[in-house]
Amino acid sequence: MRFADVPSGRVPEPMAEPRMPRRVLIVTGQHFAAAPRKVDLHFMADALRAQGDHVDFLTCRLSPISRFLKDGRYAYARSRLLNRWVEIGPGFEEFIWFAPFHPMNLKKPFLNRLSGLFFRRYADLLPKAVRDRLPGYTHVLIESGPAPLLTPLIRRKAPDAQIVYHAADRLKTIGVHPVIQEVLNESIGFYDLVHIMAEAMRPDFPADAPVLYLPHGISKGVFDQATASPYAKPLNAVSVGDMLFDANVIDTLSAANPDWKFHLFGKKALPAKPRDNIVVHGEVPFEAIVPFIKFADIGLAPYRLSDGADYLSQSSLKMIQYSYSRLPIVAPAFAAGGREHVCAYDPADASSIREAFVKAQVYDRSRIDVSGIRTWEEAVQVIFPADRSG
């Protein structure tokens, strides 16, 4: 099946004939294969492995410079084996690449122009142990972030692989070095598929690029099997994740609703002011978070306004998880499009934030449609089409 044959957003019917196992490489500058916090890449890897496929995880954007950054990635990486393939589980290996340097946004246009020439050579440092495996992959997923710098090399070394650009975020929204956008634009022809999770991102790519809009899947089985509520009392609002986290929203809502409990999940999801009705859970494994989502009364998506963040209304995984649990959602207006059960607010207007929360409290949850939400197993069949025998 060619990517061009897949109608936008449509999942093909399962096919019964046998197929060759896939060998998939996932390249990311954000995530680790065995980290407790699970994101879309982990769920896709799990779905592929459950179908008998092999998945390799290449984590980049690590170097001695990382020691001085405050994202926690350096400390985690140093607790793992570096620059070698390590088996995480059956059919699942990781390579944490610790390089002499890695691309980072230096914030000053002059410095970025100079360093851009240097960072274009980042792929030259890719270890031989990774290069040697490239010809054997059937599919390679390049996540938005620094990974597009590796695409030209990967295409040369793996000419028969299907290469997918996984546009999890706009590059300007996550603040990468501008040379990465330049290289992505120059090498867009190397991709067999550009996977977007929000229609708002379609204009970001050339009209003839093989763009497919396909929202995140979710682990329906994990949600369906959660039967015990973790809450001692009703009136619970849950916020999952810390991307563009706006602590002011939590402060406003917790002060205005002292009878509600506000549960925050995410390493950097911290309130501006501690309050008795705010519970900070930190970074917690996905399976432990699911009951807090499923049995909550309201889902919070307190995104901070950022340039080009309008795509979050469709691409946010937590908003899909909230929707599957039939939670009314409180979110800023720029991230509210396309879902009737999102109660929108103006981040600059405290009264608007409070009013959105009041609307969410009385929203009829039975009206929330979950029929269009897919499993990860369905999603990977589209993103990584397999060769069929015969």
Rank of each mutant, 00 (worst) to 15 (best):
L69F: 13
I196L: 07
S187W: 00
F295T: 13
G29I: 05
T151W: 03
N248E: 14
F357K: 03
M197T: 12
L235P: 11
V249M: 05
A47S: 12
A237H: 03
N83D: 01
P178M: 11
R131F: 11
V362E: 06
F295Y: 13
W97F: 15
D192H: 07
D71G: 04
P178G: 11
V27A: 04
S323Q: 15
L41T: 05
N185L: 08
K70N: 14
K107H: 15
V280Q: 08
G52M: 09
M319H: 02
Y311Q: 09
I383T: 06
L106G: 04
N248C: 15
V176A: 02
I320M: 06
Q361M: 05
R10G: 12
Q181M: 10
I88W: 09
K294W: 10
L253R: 13
L25G: 00
P234Y: 02
D346V: 02
F286R: 13
P302E: 05
F95E: 07
A296F: 03
L235V: 12
Y137I: 00
T138C: 07
R388H: 13
A207E: 14
R10I: 15
R120M: 11
I368L: 01
Q361P: 03
Y322V: 14
K107P: 12
A256H: 06
T28Y: 09
M44W: 13
E340W: 03
A360K: 01
A379E: 08
P127M: 13
D204P: 08
E143C: 10
I383D: 02
S352C: 06
E283V: 08
V11D: 05
R326P: 05
F384A: 01
G217R: 00
F292M: 12
F43S: 06
L62G: 04
A360Y: 01
E199A: 14
Y76V: 03
R2Y: 15
D169Y: 03
D40G: 15
L114Q: 15
V194F: 00
R304H: 13
D40H: 14
A344G: 00
Y303L: 10
G338A: 11
S63H: 03
F295N: 10
D208I: 05
H216F: 09
S313P: 02
A226T: 02
G308D: 01
R80F: 08
M243G: 13
D132V: 12
F3L: 14
P206W: 00
E143G: 08
W85Q: 01
A272E: 14
I188V: 01
D71Y: 02
F95H: 12
N105G: 04
V6R: 15
